[in-house]
Nucleic acid binder design. Sequence first.
DNA 1: TCCATATATCATGATTAATTGATATATTTA
DNA 2: TAAATATATCAATTAATCATGATATATGGA
Lengths: 110, 110
Amino acid sequence: MDNSDAIASFAALSQPTRLDVFRLLVKAGAQGMLSGEIGERLDVRQNTMSANLAVLLNAGLVRNERQGRKIRYFADFDAMRGLLGFLMEDCCGGRPDLCQPVIDEIACAC
Amino acid sequence: MDNSDAIASFAALSQPTRLDVFRLLVKAGAQGMLSGEIGERLDVRQNTMSANLAVLLNAGLVRNERQGRKIRYFADFDAMRGLLGFLMEDCCGGRPDLCQPVIDEIACAC
DNA sequence: TCCATATATCATGATTAATTGATATATTTA
DNA sequence: TAAATATATCAATTAATCATGATATATGGA
């Protein structure tokens, strides 16, 4: 994870449809979702969805896997890890009380 | 933290100077940094830096505090918390092994 | 009050991104 | 192999963003 990877990731997440897609894939977890399923759920046209998925893919935030003529997309949790780590690098100026709540927040119930 | 707050935050972080600024302020922690200090450190012109700080401020990612004629900026850790929580909401589809490494990554050493 | 310092705002030109209609590619089924 | 389905690519228009020069505002000190 270098600076330009992080820029690409944040740019990818800074668009409403793509943010929705990514959060949907985070929720879906290891099961992922089909491209068509995603487009239907979010009511986004086919080519727009394809373009937006390509941006997420290019940023490394999602992976995909062909299944016949469908394509299944997954949130890439390793990429998430890298991105958040990059953002929080050397955080807090030595004051854990600032940093800890941030960590707690993503300590999801799963 | 709603969808449009998150969009604003990611858009703010998707620009090289602003990402540098934010990471610098994360490192600085509670001490923060003066606007001028930041501009000098990152070698960015005065009005460009001011505009970029305004974007971060508007996104809620940083706070500021006037000190005489200088203005001190701070990373807003509550906003970070909200943003990461929003992104990871209902994560992993019930598989903690996917989520845990993400949490571990930002468990900084401070 | 006048000047210097620190920061913010405004207008503009240049670059970049987003959506869309049309079309192409890949895969499965008949 | 032809048709149908699922997804990707292309070209073009519109819209958003960025850095910059110029200028304005706010604070502190002489």
